[in-house]
């Protein structure tokens, strides 16, 4: 056997376990789920079928269709607010904070990452509740006559999400900013640009790929999350993941849960296709 053929055989042998794992525990279940989405429930029995009934229902049943819009609205709001808040923060840390404090400040900025995700949502419930710290402070300072209900509304969900994704985006945008050569800004300044113009016309466009990658990540993680809306948003309006869990829990409607999952995936795929040309998925 030639050396080259032997090399190839060994290469294949090394990749095979991982590929098999992905095939058996990812591709197969996923295919099974796609099939399941074409079945339907009769009483408690799952009847295999080949029709698009579940999908038709998702787009006609108001409570299900509403879930898609609720999810999209929340995710869009969260993504936009998070980017708008995180960019200046990353910029200030990268350019205004003295070098020796930078690492410390950055670590502090992502400190809440180290609590568990469930606990982080819980602590927002703690803060935003009617008797929580925020309402206490606002009423105490005389800014509000009496507590306003935030918990169990969309505002609470968005706050919890923004908190998480500001941290995430600050990290990605910061790592983008410090890779830029300071010469760009200097050259623009030498050519007479004001500081504001340097940011708007030079720095901001240069960080766009990083921002888009971060925003896409935010979109994907946000739209697929069950914990935050479930703990903070209450039951007035349900997001797609909440609807999926509801189908599972209430009557074991696997077919509908599967169809909703496929819709959720389709939305993510569309978002990817729409933003692909700006994304910079390094190396892989």
């Amino acid at each position: 056997m030639s050396i080259e053929a032997q090399e190839k055989r060994q290469g294949v042998a090394l990749v095979t376990p991982a590929l098999l794992w992905t095939l058996v525990f990812f591709a197969v279940p996923f295919g099974a789920m796609a099939l399941m989405s074409l079945a339907h429930l009769e009483g408690r029995e799952i009847v295999q079928g080949h029709d698009l009934g579940n999908y038709l229902r998702i787009f006609t049943d108001p409570s299900l269709r509403r879930g898609i819009f609720v999810s999209l609205e929340i995710t869009a709001t969260v993504t936009v607010i998070s980017v708008l808040l995180a960019w200046p923060l990353a910029w200030i840390i990268a350019t205004r904070v003295p070098q020796r404090w930078r690492r410390m400040v950055l670590l502090l900025a992502v400190l809440p990452f180290w609590t568990s995700y469930v606990v982080r949502s819980y602590s927002w419930a703690l803060v935003l509740g009617e008797k929580g710290v925020v309402m206490n402070a606002l009423v105490g300072l005389g800014l509000l006559a009496e507590p306003v209900q935030i918990m169990a509304t969309r505002a609470a969900t968005v706050t919890g999400f923004v908190h998480f994704f500001v941290m995430l985006l600050t990290l990605t945008i910061y790592s983008n900013l410090i890779q830029l050569s300071p010469n760009y800004a200097r050259a623009a300044q030498d050519l007479g640009a004001s500081q504001w113009q340097v940011i708007r016309l030079v720095i901001l466009p240069l960080t766009l790929p990083g921002v888009m990658t971060g925003a896409f990540l935010t979109f994907v993680l946000c739209i697929g999350d069950y914990i935050t809306p479930q703990i903070l948003g209450g039951n007035n309006e349900l997001t797609l993941p909440q609807l999926i869990m509801l189908q599972l829990g209430r009557r074991g409607d696997y077919p509908m849960a599967s169809a909703l999952s496929i819709v959720l995936m389709a939305i993510v795929t569309l978002a990817y296709a729409a933003s692909a040309r700006w994304l910079k998925m390094e190396r892989v």
Partner: peptide
Amino acid sequence: RVILPGSALMRGALIAPMTVSYLIIALG
């Protein structure tokens, strides 16, 4: 170590679960 036919495809297949929500992986 070697460039195999379909290397890019294999890389894609191995990365694919990253793009799917945990909820969907769990449900499957």
